[in-house]
């Protein structure tokens, strides 16, 4: 790995560890390998959002050309958000693409992602299904996102109605995540989700 990239990451790692956000448990950063090419990030769901109370794990890969090119970041924790793929965790955020600047750091990236959770951009979606729901039925979106936060990110709010519907599908032999995706995509309409799953 290029010297400059390793040196930057070392320093940034220290910066994050010492930051007040870590003290407040808002962000977290861990090394995955010893040569600073891969890290694991974690951000807390921002308050007053469907993600509140959840912890979202991120995979961070540092390219050889860092910091001249942005780090490659994706969500490991499954999340329901217009700008994050519910399938792959890929993120649509300008600073991770053409708006990257060499002076940005892993800390600013993590904080930007946290900000993205509070302010979605449905007009520049990564997940078209989620974005459509966000624009057409915001309440349904919030309910779904909160349920996903509870199911995957350790969020506190349990929605027993959702859980029941999933259980119905699981009882029919559908895998749980698959059932959740289908129900989420059809605004928790059990009939249509079933139809889609068995068609």
């Amino acid at each position: 790995m290029a010297n400059i990239a390793a040196q930057r990451i070392k320093r940034e790692f220290k910066e994050v560890i010492k930051s007040e956000e870590v003290a407040k448990c808002a962000i977290k950063l861990e090394l995955v390998d010893n040569n600073y090419t891969e890290l694991k990030g974690e951000i807390a769901g921002p308050p007053d959002t469907p993600y509140e109370g959840g912890n979202f794990v991120l995979e961070i890969k540092v390219p050889e050309t860092y910091p001249f090119n942005p780090p490659k970041v994706r969500f490991i924790t499954k999340i329901w958000h217009p700008n994050i793929s519910s399938v792959t965790g890929a993120i649509c955020l300008d600073i991770l693409k053409d708006q990257w600047a060499a002076a940005m750091t892993l800390r600013t990236v993590l904080l930007s992602l946290q900000a993205l959770l509070s302010a979605a951009e449905p007009d520049d979606p990564q997940d078209a299904v989620v974005a459509r729901q966000y624009k057409e039925n915001l309440d349904m979106f919030k309910l779904t996102a909160r349920h996903w936060t509870n199911a995957y990110a350790g969020g506190p709010s349990v929605n027993s109605e959702c859980d029941d519907k999933i259980k119905r599908l699981v009882d029919m032999g559908i895998e749980e995540h698959q059932a959740r995706v289908a129900l989420s995509s059809y605004n928790w309409d059990l009939e249509r989700a079933t139809e889609q799953l068995f068609s």
Binding site: I4, Q7, R8, R11, E12, P67, F68, A102, A103
Partner: peptide, 12 residues
């Protein structure tokens, strides 16, 4: 070393 003397790109 003062922060002001650090390059924001290479952090050296």
């Amino acid at each position: 070393v003062d922060e002001e003397l650090i390059c924001p790109i290479c952090s050296a």
